Amino acid sequence: MKKGVLLVNLGSPDSPEPKDVKKYLGEFLMDERVIDIPYVARALLVRGIILKTRPKASAAAYKKIWWKEGSPLIVISERLQNKVQKQVDVPVSLAMRYGSMSIHNGIQELVDQGVNDILLFPLYPQFAMATTETITVLAEKLRHDFFPDINIESVPAFYNKPDYIEVLSNSIKSHIEGENPQHLLFSYHGVPERHIRKSDVTNSHCKIDGNCCVTSSKAHEFCYRHQCLEVTRLVAEKLGLKEGTYSTSFQSRLGFDPWLQPYTDRTIERLGKQGIKNMAIVTPAFVSDCLETLEEIAMEGQEIFHEVGGKHFKTVPCLNDDDAFVTLLSQWINHWVTSETVAV
């Protein structure tokens, strides 16, 4: 069998214009693992309400961060793909869960090169219904419907792998050295609390009560909240951060249902009001900088901090195409190629 790798990230509109943003948001928000309510209700909410107002505002946000080369997330992901390709001996393709760079096209690109054994690599350190799961489920459907003669194996969440934690910690350290932040905030993309309970394979462990995430359970394999908190704990331990000088929060909530807390915007505001003048923020749920990191955090977050008296606001870049991260991904891929097992 000929092996190949498909890196998969979230996706992006084709342009920051409202019509393209609307098309992208429509595909994204109609995913039953993103807004997990019955189809009719989801269609009424998305097409009847959200897509009538949100595209214009989102387009304005995208225009603030759009690069000359295109969408930052797409450009960065392509750089990552190109660098990884130079360090491995099998074809490496890139796809997005949403948008024109579809997973179907990514698989087809590999199949056209003779590949029939694919390592599906979701570029998410933590598992979540709306990220890893929707990618793997769609890939399997496409395999069944269009590519029945190929094999697809998926890379599991790698949030707690020592070599990943070392790369992430070293990156954070390199960006805050000399900055001396009073507080380091770990901000993760939020999800509705019901997603945590739905992903609980035990159907009983997850209670989001402050204790379940630190109590050993097989539920942790698919618990996004636990995995986020664990990244914070492991990095803080690696960097020797003192208790009280770092914390975890969740950003990008949508709608009125309970989402994971504490919320990032309110946490930034609270820290500023408590007298923190110098803070840094890192976003470990993303491997590539995107709208949520470049606009929501670096721009909106900084504005909130300054409004409540904060002075210095440092945004730590995602791993992006950092050489150490490229080497790590390449090592994992090469291990799979030679041993036929996923090293992650």
Rank of each mutant, 00 (worst) to 15 (best):
E69D: 14
V92Q: 00
E237H: 09
V34K: 09
G244W: 00
H220P: 12
S187F: 02
I196A: 15
G301P: 02
N203D: 09
K19H: 07
V287R: 13
R266H: 09
T132W: 08
K277D: 05
A43L: 03
F147I: 05
F305S: 12
I37H: 10
R33M: 05
R270Q: 05
L110Y: 07
I107Y: 11
Q113F: 04
W332S: 09
L29H: 09
P181L: 02
S204M: 07
G106P: 04
H175A: 15
D89W: 02
G244E: 00
I35Y: 12
L29R: 07
S216Q: 13
G70H: 10
A41M: 05
Y124R: 06
K22Q: 01
I49Y: 14
F186A: 06
T267K: 04
E17P: 06
Q227F: 13
P181W: 03
L234T: 03
N170V: 08
S154T: 05
Q261L: 10
V111D: 09
C290S: 14
T232G: 11
G26E: 00
F121Q: 02
H195M: 06
V84W: 04
D321T: 12
T131M: 05
G310C: 00
K161H: 10
S71W: 10
L260S: 13
D89S: 13
W259T: 09
A157Q: 06
S330K: 03
I297P: 08
S187V: 00
I276Y: 03
A280E: 01
P317I: 12
E109I: 00
V316G: 15
N320Q: 15
T283Q: 04
N180W: 06
I152C: 12
G255C: 02
H189S: 06
V342N: 02
C290L: 04
A298M: 07
S174H: 11
G11A: 11
S58R: 01
R225I: 07
N320C: 15
R225L: 10
R33E: 02
F146M: 11
V46H: 07
N9S: 15
I297V: 12
F186E: 02
R253K: 12
I297G: 14
Y164S: 10
N9L: 08
F121D: 01
W332Q: 09
G70F: 14
Q331V: 00
A60C: 02
K2V: 02
S216C: 15
H104G: 14
R47I: 01
Y263C: 08
I50T: 07
Q126A: 13
R233P: 07
V137A: 15
I276E: 01
I150C: 14
F250L: 03
D200V: 12
T264N: 02
E292F: 09
L29W: 05
E237D: 11
T283N: 12
Q331N: 08
E179R: 15
E303F: 11
L241A: 06
N105E: 08
P317C: 14
L271E: 02
I152T: 15
A343H: 04
I172Q: 08
P192N: 05
H306D: 08
F250A: 08
V46W: 03
A285E: 00
H312P: 04
R42F: 07
P122N: 09
T53I: 05
P148V: 13
F186I: 01
T327P: 00
T267S: 06
P55H: 03
S204A: 10
K314L: 11
V137N: 15
E292C: 06
N9M: 10
A130D: 04
Y24L: 03
T202V: 10
K68T: 10
S288Y: 13
F121N: 00
M101H: 15
V201E: 11
P125G: 13
P125R: 06
